[in-house]
């Protein structure tokens, strides 16, 4: 594994890439949220990661501290459902990175993150939320590393693939959680915004990791 400074730079690069991507996808995410939510997911996510990207000079210390600050910044900038879900889960999972980013700590981070999202939001797979993208991604990542012994980058690529299937899977579902649940059967046929933003973030992580 690379030294702390290299890892820190990779994390900062990832933050920039994610911020840029979410800003580029702002109106797409908002359109998804217009159909079955309240038309703010794009604004929420790009405001949140925009704030994180502007704070990169404060992002020093160990990797886990850097990631924790990402989480707390999201908590205090995003609001809505996605703020505590994204921010709180990143903050919580950051503890797993105490020893830096390795294949093992990455799996632990991913698991802790998923746990916290489910703990907070109480959504199951099939509730038509970000959980539907996250669960297959985390499961795939864990198995690729722990059982199939694949290199982390390959494992991450497979996880992105799984997340994308999860996103597509949300389309035909009737929502049980989040604002889309208020629509009852009218949520069927629409893609979940939070699952989509989860996928976008993972795609950027893969992109940066591949460099």
């Amino acid at each position: 594994m690379a030294d702390t400074e290299t890892q820190r730079e990779a994390v900062l690069a990832a933050i920039d890439a994610v911020a840029e991507r979410l800003s580029a996808e702002k109106s797409y995410l908002t359109d998804l949220d217009s159909a079955i939510g309240d038309a703010d997911h794009g604004a929420n996510m790009s405001r949140g990661f925009g704030a994180v990207a502007e704070k990169t000079d404060e992002l020093d210390g160990d990797i886990d501290d850097v990631v924790k600050t990402v989480g707390t910044t999201l908590i205090s900038e995003v609001g809505g459902a996605s703020g505590p879900l994204y921010g709180g889960s990143i903050m919580f999972a950051s503890q797993e990175l105490e020893g830096g980013i390795t294949a093992e700590t990455s799996v632990a981070f991913a698991e802790a993150y998923l746990d916290k999202v489910q703990d907070r939001g109480d959504a199951q797979i099939g509730s038509k939320t970000m959980v539907d993208a996250l669960t297959p991604a985390v499961h795939t990542f864990k198995k690729s590393i722990e059982q199939d012994d694949l290199p982390p980058l390959t494992a991450l690529a497979k996880a992105v693939d799984a997340a994308e299937r999860g996103v597509n899977f949300t389309v035909p579902l009737k929502a049980k959680k989040g604002r889309a649940s208020y629509l009852d059967w009218r949520s069927v046929g629409h893609q979940d915004p939070g699952a989509t933003s989860t996928l976008f973030i993972m795609e950027e992580l893969l992109d940066v990791a591949s460099e």
Partner: peptide, 9 residues
Amino acid sequence: GQVFTSPTA
């Protein structure tokens, strides 16, 4: 909060 977005904690 922002329009239609819960305030942060």
